[in-house]
Amino acid sequence: MAVRKLDCLTELCPIPLLKAIQEFKTMDIGDILVIEADHSCVCTDVKKWAREKEYEVKSIEIGPGEWEIYIKKTR
């Protein structure tokens, strides 16, 4: 079970989601992807995608205007 970090600071939609999709292709089941973002729509965007794919997803605001999104490749 590996944890990967994806630095998406200053990137706007849809770049973080596209990067996450690309990163997910190379990940094994059980791995966790952490996305760092500072664009509020990224949470909405990534969560919508993860829920459609039925991956576990969670986000927290780590500072003013900065978020970390965790997605687990459950299948």
Binding site: L9, T10, D38, S40, G63, P64, G65, E66
Partner: peptide, 18 residues
Amino acid sequence: ATLLASEFKIKKIKDRKQ
């Protein structure tokens, strides 16, 4: 709106490509 949501942040320039 950003201040009311307390999401104000000055974004740094990342690299030349950006």
